[in-house]
Design a protein around this nucleic acid. Structure first.
Lengths: 349, 349
DNA sequence: GTTAGCACTCACCTATAATGAGTGCTAATC
DNA sequence: GATTAGCACTCATTATAGGTGAGTGCTAAC
């Protein structure tokens, strides 16, 4: 969709309307704009401009003599051209972040904390998603004997994520055989990409171990299982009930529909993944969302990368009448923060 | 609290009132009882009995000329003495359960599925909690080398739960040293209870490995870390938004307060743990709950054990006006089901 | 001990009127 | 030609008042 250029004055008025409506949720009238915002114009002139903006589809009127309300198209132009990102206000994040700093020991944890902060600060619902691994190179793998007939397969993946699975093995296999096997598997498979475990490699393992194929297969299957699970994502939701604070969800049915989406892991992951594809920041407004249940909601997502390694995606879901400025600024702020903090963290522990 | 004995007729009337109110949420009048329920009495007589029941605190009146509503005390006597558990209706569970049966591969999974079914069937919110491990005997432990200076500690616990942690080790340690160390650790610590890793054992390990103490300590610390995390619980929530379907939560503020509790992992765990202490089935009605936010809610919890091994706790949260009969029957049904299914599962995979 | 009858209470519903924020249009002004 | 002031009109929202009915407590009769 391309948007015709709008005269600067129309832009100013549109911005004022959206700003006001975001704050009050009341249809905003021409007099309000004339009084509260510094557009040196009378209400009558503004009235005319508003009529134009409505004709162009940026505003709409709930009923004939009410004020104007931004349409999805209006929000879109607001988000694309009228927002002023202001990161100066987020010192609160810093304070809270420092508090957590010391106890953060895992890569994903920092994003989790951010998610919590965002939901607190914005009063919307926020999500964070992290691929359990993306660069699924096998860094190391090992077989741990548990007891006769059973062993644990452990795989360490490219980004230090660990996956494991208990497998049943032949009763006849002795403990030290497992240790030997474990070393062979580790040597053969380390460095492999997930999809690179070919039959050829398995054959080599069989040959080198001098053992029967059917004794080894359960172990290899276990390893492959670990890798498949590795494509899973970890989802973290914060502040779902915040949505109930916003008047648009005072109606129980609306609220229920939205909360069902919020609690549906599959849908949320789908939504966040879209952002990852697009890369960087993404705003989907109202009907632009694929799901009808949230056609009166907006989603802002940001996917963070360092050295082309995808760290995760953070998303915020709120009513279409969302404080885009605050949300977008927050996510941008976090991007800076991550770029600043993560590199040393990545080489560090 | 001890409750005075109630005359059988009063009991019958009380049951009728609670049954009706649970279904309709409307204050129930004497005429309704006389017509809909088979107590061969006139409305006037019932009126007198109701007045008595109100005096005794089992009922209350929203306003002077309205019907009666059960009080917490009324629900209590209903739950304790008037419920008929009927498990015949839950064939639906069976059908759904069979569908999932094949894909259940983990111990806790079956409880998760049950949780989902319950929330669907009852239209309330349900939880399941599982200790990540309770019998924290070390079944096996192993050190997996990842790369120079780093290794992965893996601990398999009594109930087949696996925990792991990446630790930094001295740069000078060679790969085969780790393998040797791993075997020593496994031999020395297998069979240990979590709290039984004494300094003596560590000293033995140091001696046998002929290595410096400070080289080994990071590994031992890693193992201990794994065990400490083992006391954590896993919580699973299903159907949070179901609560919004019940009229008592049409008010946004009530709904928000309750949903906040539902989403607060710590509080929910606390609630469910209480049940574990009490053992078996537990019903907490309205004000009996420790948290004000849910003083208009009831919680039914059931902790399941087999051979004194705690499998987990399932809980249902809904409005005080809850279909206790259905909820309690469901949880009892599941207890039967678990006793039937789990034993072979436990020895099996 | 039980029941029928009756006056009384009080939430809830409905209709109507009053209010006021906001508009579109027209004519006067810069 | 663009801007503004003025005015009649629209329509959601709020307040008020009367009517309705479910349910009670009490009394007297069975």
């Amino acid at each position: 969709m391309s948007y015709e250029e709008l005269a600067p004055r129309k832009m100013r008025i549109l911005k004022a309307i959206v700003d006001d409506y975001i704050q009050s949720m009341e249809p905003v009238g021409s007099r309000t704009i004339a009084k509260k915002y510094e557009v040196g114009l009378s209400s009558a002139t503004i009235r005319n401009e508003m009529a134009d903006l409505e004709d162009m589809g940026y505003l709409s009127q709930p009923y004939s003599s009410a004020g104007r309300v931004p349409s999805d198209k209006g929000y879109r132009i607001y988000v694309d051209h009228l927002i002023e990102i202001d990161e100066s206000k987020f010192s609160e994040y810093n304070r809270l972040l420092n508090y957590y700093e010391q106890r953060i020991n895992e890569l994903g944890q920092i994003i989790k904390v951010m998610t919590k902060l965002i939901s607190k600060a914005t009063q919307y619902t926020s999500f964070s998603m992290k691929y359990k691994t993306r660069s699924s190179i096998i860094k190391a793998c090992q077989v741990v004997p548990i007891e006769k007939g059973r062993a644990l397969v452990v795989v360490v993946l490219g980004n230090d994520l660990v996956r494991n699975k208990i497998v049943n093995i032949d009763y006849s296999i002795e403990l030290d055989t497992i240790v030997r096997l474990s070393n062979i598997l580790d040597r053969k498979l380390s460095g492999c990409r997930a999809e690179g475990i070919s039959v050829i490699i398995v054959n080599e393992i069989v040959k080198e171990s001098c053992m029967d194929r059917h004794l080894i297969l359960p172990l290899v299957d276990g390893i492959i299982d670990c890798l498949q699970h590795a494509e899973e994502v970890e989802l973290y939701t914060e502040g779902a009930s915040n949505l109930l604070m916003h008047p648009e969800f005072f109606d129980v049915n609306r609220a229920k529909a939205v909360l069902e989406v919020v609690h549906d892991t599959d849908i949320v992951v789908q939504l966040l993944k879209k952002s990852a594809e697009a890369g960087g920041l993404m705003v989907r407004i109202g009907q632009e969302n694929d799901f009808d249940e949230i056609s009166d909601c907006s989603i802002v997502t940001a996917t963070y990368r360092i050295n082309d390694v995808e760290l995760g995606t953070i998303g915020v879901l709120g009513p279409t009448r969302m404080d885009y400025q605050k949300v977008i600024s927050s996510l941008e702020y976090i991007r800076k923060k991550l770029n600043q903090d993560m590199p040393h963290r990545l080489e560090g522990s």
